[in-house]
Amino acid sequence: MDNRLFYSSTQRNRDCIGDVLSRIIKKGSVLEIGSGSGEHGVVFQKRFPGIIWQTSDPELVHRKSISSWIEYEDLTKNMPQPLEIDVEKIPWKIPLRLAHSLQGIVSINMIHVAQWSCTVALFRESGKLLNKGQFLILYGPFKICNKHTSESNYFFDNSLKMQNGLWGIKNLEEVCDESKKNGFSQEDIIKMPANNFSIIYRKIFDK
């Protein structure tokens, strides 16, 4: 059965996110938290065949979509099936092979459709899994100095809060403070299309 989901945002941002990843991906495995439809995962697995892209999502409908995308793109021999990871249910249950080969963690368009405690959990568990020099990348919209970077982000933020009062675009400085608590430094802030950013964090000491 074809359970693939399609998100228009993936079509727009997958190439530019891939360009950011190409700067830092070397070898080993990458864990994606909140993989959604899985469209990003299969694109990045094909673009970076020398790594293993491990998707994850707490929602069954998303994991079914990811599995369908893996099969559709003929990646079943190269790409593992998605993990069931709820970012707040810690410790995350990941295979030993992934823990040993992990070089970085990526989360795309996740923290603004989640409560703040999810951001806290993301950095806490990433800090436990990653070693010195390894990366955590966040992609999405952010407020800077508690101000929106565009009018469209202001309206988007309001629409998120109407869906769930705990959701909303996060303030970059607060996210950075949380990263420091868990042994990360903010390496780069990259402006992306459609008023989004890629934020690269590096672990500054071993777990």
Rank of each mutant, 00 (worst) to 15 (best):
K143E: 03
F142R: 07
N146P: 00
L130K: 03
L138G: 00
K128F: 13
E84M: 13
L136S: 02
L102T: 11
P95W: 00
Y139I: 05
I111C: 04
I137E: 02
Q115G: 15
R97A: 01
P141S: 08
L129S: 07
H100Q: 03
Q103L: 01
I137A: 01
R97V: 15
R97Q: 06
T149N: 10
I111M: 13
A114F: 09
F135I: 06
V113N: 06
G133P: 12
P91W: 13
L96H: 09
T119F: 10
E84P: 03
N109K: 05
W116N: 04
L96F: 13
C145V: 12
L122V: 06
V120H: 08
M110S: 02
E151S: 05
G127R: 00
Y139V: 06
C118E: 02
N109S: 02
K128C: 13
Q115R: 14
E125H: 07
R97I: 15
V106A: 04
R124V: 05
H148T: 12
C145S: 08
E151R: 07
L129E: 06
E151D: 13
L130E: 08
V106D: 01
S107W: 12
I90E: 13
W92N: 08
I94L: 03
Y139G: 00
V106M: 11
Q103R: 09
I94N: 00
V87L: 09
R124A: 08
S126Y: 11
K93F: 06
